[in-house]
Structure formats: C-alpha cells, structure tokens
Simulated assay, not measured.
Amino acid sequence: MKDKLLEAWSKMLSKLDHWFDSIILALPNFIIAIIVFTFVLFLSKQINKLVLKLLDRSSMQRSMKNLISKLVSAIVIIVGLFIVLGILNLDKALNTVLAGAGVLGLAVGLALQGALANFYSGVVLSYIHFFKYGDWIESNGYEGEITNIDLRSVTLKQSDNNLVYIPNKMVVDSPIKNYSTTAQSRVILTCGVHYDSDLKFVRDLVVKTIVERFDAVTSKQEVLFMYNEFADSSINFETRFWIKSTSALEVAKAKSEAIIAIKAEFDANDINIPFPIRTLDFPEGFLGGNTQNEVSAQRPSNE
C-alpha cells in the first residue's frame, strides 16, 4: 500500500513538473498575447474615432454613423481574438468552437429573440430619414425629444426633463408621430362665450388678438375661426393658427399664451365665458299657489 502511495505521489509530482514546464514555455506566448490584445483594443477605439470622423463628411444620420463605427470596431476585436488564439496555439480549440457554433447559435438565437429583434429594429431606425436625433416625437404613449438611438432602445427626453427608454421593437411596431418633420405646428384652441354675446364681434376680436400676439401669423386669413356647438351654457368655438416651431412643448406654450391674451381681451370688452349652470324657471305664482293650497288643506272644515 505504501509503495502504491509513493508511486502515485511520484506520478503527481511528475505531472506537476510537466505542467510547470508547459507554463514556463507558454509564458512568452501568453505575455505576447496580452500585449497584442491590449493593442487590438486600443486600435479598435482609434478606428472607431477615425470611422466616425470620416462618416461626419457624409449625409448619413448620426445613429447610422454610430452603428457603422461600432460594427467596424467589433470586427477589429474579433480579428484580434483570432490572432491571440493563434499565438496561444489554440487553433484546434478554435476549430472545435467553430464546429459547434451552428448549434450554439441556434440555441442563443431562440433564447435572445427579444434582444435580436431590438437589434434589428435599431438598425432599421438608424437607417430611416424621418426619425433622427433632435426630433420631437410621440410613440407608445410617450412624447419627447430623441437624444439617443442605440441597438437596444430609443431614448426620449420629455418636457419635464425625464428620460424614457423605449425598446426599438416597440417603436418600429407602433405608430410614430413626428412633430419635427415640418417647419410649422398648428395650435388648436377651443372656448365658449355666453349666448348674449355678439358672435361677429367675438370672432373679429379673437382673430385680431392672435394676429397681434404671434409673429408667425401675419394676416387674419391665416387664422381659422369656427363656431361649432350650441352647448348647455355657451356657444363654443374653435380657432386654429400656425406657429414656427416643431416642438410639442412650444405648441403648448403658444396655446397658453393665446388663452391668456384672449381672456384679457374678453375681460376688457365685457365678454362672458360661462361655466356650466342649471337654471330653474318657475311659473309666476307657482310657489305662492302651493303654499296657499297647503295651508287650505291643513284648515279644518266647518261644514
């Protein structure tokens, strides 16, 4: 038993010596591999900057430029990995990995369907021209300025300065309202006036107020004014006009300014904006008649 233990111990020491010799022999290659991979990482960053600089001269979207530069950088790193594996004499291991890449790729593809869908959608969003950095859009119930488009999500900066990250697939599959595709935006304002108001005077006053308040409106013909409803307490109207802005926030500000200006003009001209009320109209003597009947009913009969 003792001889067997000594023999096993001797074999283990011999194995350790062989491993140590292998490590010593492979140490220069390992150091060279580290140096090469570090250089590859540095080179990929420099190539990324160079590609971006070259693409800045083109008319491509910023998101597309970022995508191309990242792909070129990734290709450089993959080539560097192949070189490092060759230096470490792991060519056979590499062939084994490549042989199993087909099955592994299928499994990974099934497991990462959502990520791959977002990746493909990110490529699509980076390519289309009506969807770019700085645009003010509305999608999936969120509204804001596009501040970033990557391979996973679209980043929107809302009017309250909060950031919203929407997965690319949801943006591609949903309707997109882009406020920045035109040079102007329309402001739509609704209000109501009392039934006793002079409707022609109200119309002229509102149109005049908007023309004087907003520089983008140069004539009365550019203001659309329409009465559209006989409501319970008021005659409602709608007015529309254009402003030079592509931001929904600027539209909201213009609407607020129009409300303030129109209210001030209405107050100055004694035009009433009624609120919902309910009027009870009793016939003359209705309350008095009921009272007399009630009193007569309560009197005892002398007959």
Rank of each mutant, 00 (worst) to 15 (best):
V223S: 02
I260H: 03
A231P: 00
F214V: 04
Q221S: 11
L224I: 15
F266H: 07
F225Q: 02
I260Q: 06
K200Q: 12
L249F: 12
D232L: 15
F230N: 15
V202Q: 07
A261N: 10
K220A: 15
A252I: 13
E212W: 07
V211T: 11
E222G: 01
K208A: 15
Y227G: 03
S247N: 12
E257T: 03
F241V: 07
K263A: 14
A248F: 11
E229C: 09
I262E: 00
S233V: 14
T239Q: 02
K263V: 10
E250P: 00
R213L: 06
I243A: 03
Y227D: 04
K263N: 12
D232T: 11
L224V: 15
F225E: 02
D232A: 13
A248Q: 14
S234E: 13
S247M: 08
I243V: 11
E212A: 15
K220T: 08
K220D: 11
A216K: 01
S245Q: 04
F225P: 05
A268K: 15
A231G: 14
F241E: 11
V251Q: 06
Q221N: 12
V211Q: 08
Y227E: 03
F241A: 11
D204L: 08
W242E: 09
S233H: 12
F225T: 02
S247Q: 09
D215S: 05
T209Y: 03
I260C: 00
K220R: 10
D232K: 15
I235V: 15
K208L: 09
N228T: 13
I260R: 01
E257C: 04
I259G: 12
F201E: 13
V223E: 04
V211H: 06
S219W: 02
E250D: 15
D267E: 15
N236F: 00
K263P: 00
F225K: 03
E250R: 09
K208Y: 02
I210Q: 04
A261W: 06
I210D: 09
L224S: 08
N236C: 13
K253T: 12
A268N: 14
Y227C: 07
S219P: 04
V202P: 05
I259D: 10
T246V: 09
